[in-house]
Design a protein around this nucleic acid. Structure first.
Length: 403
DNA sequence: AGGTATTCACATGAAACTATTCTCTGAGTTAGG
DNA sequence: TAACTCAGAGAATAGTTTCATGTGAATACCTGT
């Protein structure tokens, strides 16, 4: 035992293949952003008038996850702030991520968060929204300045809040006398603007910039660039990079995914005391990411979801090998038994049917509606959790449900 | 045999209900003036 | 006295139930050969 442990410690202390792992972490800001020159230029040219003390157009940026939206906007912001200091212009650019639940997912909280960013403070609760608005306005308008507010992932926020919030924000300017305010919205959802009040659409989308997904070649460039900083010489093969890029390109060109893949592959390699990442580690990393995602879902879903999933799992085990499908009725019957066993409220079949649909969306099962003729219509369900994970998933479910 | 009518076992929709979370309002509290 | 805090009332929301309607094809049933 002792021998094995000290072996682990040895390899941890021993020179690892990482030079600087943080380069691959998601919050790292690289100093150059390859293949986004055009977009960065666009953002910059839209925001540039601020240096002359003019209000800039509202800007709306969208593209899928991991296409460099946030990074590019923040890059421009930093550059602008630098220049504005030199030029002696009063400029404030505040960044707020609406998705971080604790920070902001209601109108009130977003405003409160903004006020805090500007140096004020409000009570966590209790004040009428109108008052928070006026406090905000007061804070902004106390001197002549130009303010740009970057709202990252606003699609997340607006799902929960009604559109009025955005409308109010866009017309804040009319309430301001000294200061001026512009908005930058960042969204993952390309269709976001479509389902929004047209008044908001036209004012928020004065300018729009689209970030297309990276293709495999571009991803390779990005990975190469980061690799040279993150890893020591010769620890990564060209083939490994290509493979990473290919994997991520398949997932709608998500650079974040590619970097995660590389980092985890690196960690796996390191853990085994090797100094060179090989292609098989990429495969391992890929399945580890998949695995973690599944376990995360299983762990964080509600008891009802878990009970339904558990029933599916049990039925799947029973039918092992026979390669047949599961049907809604069977799942529901077993589910209601499970509920009785653990003394949990039993939901209606209607709801369980929806839950099965939702589990399908999460990718844990594969469900299709089929007709069995005289024997009715139902969902044909197949578990799509990799078999090497089944035991672990079952363990989690049993523990969580108290079986 | 070939055609069509039934029928099953749920799917899918809409509306109503409910428990929880948010927002708002006015009263009470605090602290500074 | 202004600013803040808080509790409770009302509004919004998410999750669920209830009621109603829809659906595709295996099977039962007919029909004429």
């Amino acid at each position: 035992m002792g021998v094995q442990i000290s072996h682990i410690f040895d390899s941890a202390i021993k020179n690892s293949l990482f030079k600087d792992k943080s380069v691959l972490q998601t919050n790292y800001t690289p100093e150059s952003i390859p293949h986004r020159d055009k977009q960065i230029e666009q953002v910059a040219s839209i925001l540039a008038p601020i240096l002359r003390g003019e209000r800039v157009s509202n800007l709306f940026v969208y593209g899928k996850t991991g296409t460099g939206k946030t990074l590019s906007v923040q890059y421009v912001r930093d550059e602008l702030l630098k220049r504005s200091k030199e030029a002696g212009v009063e400029v404030r650019i505040e960044y707020l991520n609406c998705k971080l639940k604790k920070v902001a997912d209601t109108e009130y909280r977003i405003l409160a968060a903004l006020i805090e960013l500007l140096g004020g403070k409000v009570a966590d609760t209790g004040l009428p929204t109108g008052q928070v608005y006026s406090k905000f306005i007061e804070l902004v308008d106390n001197k002549k300045q130009i303010l740009i507010v970057i709202l990252d992932e606003i699609d997340q926020a607006v799902k929960k809040i009604d559109d009025n919030f955005l409308y109010n924000l866009t017309r804040l300017n009319s309430e301001l006398s000294k200061a001026q305010i512009s908005l930058i919205g960042i969204s993952n959802d390309v269709t976001f603007l479509d389902n929004i009040d047209s008044r908001v659409r036209s004012s928020l989308g004065e300018e729009e910039i689209i970030f297309p997904p990276y293709n495999a070649v571009q991803l390779k460039d990005i990975l190469n660039e980061r690799c040279s900083r993150a890893f020591k010489e010769n620890s990564v093969d060209e083939a490994v990079i290509s493979k990473c890029a290919a994997f991520a390109a398949r997932e709608h060109g998500d650079a974040r995914r590619a970097l995660d893949l590389l980092r985890i592959a690196g960690e796996l390699t390191e853990r085994e005391g090797k100094m060179k990442i090989t292609e098989e580690y990429i495969d391992q990393a890929n399945s580890k990411i998949e695995k973690d995602k599944i376990l995360e879902i299983v762990q964080t879903s509600t008891k009802q979801f878990q009970a339904v999933l558990y029933s599916i799992l049990k039925l799947h085990n029973k039918l092992q090998g026979s390669d047949s499908y599961l049907f809604t009725g069977d799942i529901f019957n077993l589910y209601s038994e499970v509920c009785k066993n653990i003394k949990m409220e039993e939901l209606t079949q209607r709801r369980v049917s929806d839950i099965i649909g939702e589990i399908d969306m999460l990718g844990l099962i594969n469900a299709q509606v089929i007709s069995k003729g005289r024997h009715g219509r139902t969902r044909e369900v197949k578990l799509s959790i990799p078999s090497n994970l089944l035991d672990k998933v079952e363990g989690i479910l049993i523990e969580s449900l108290g079986l």
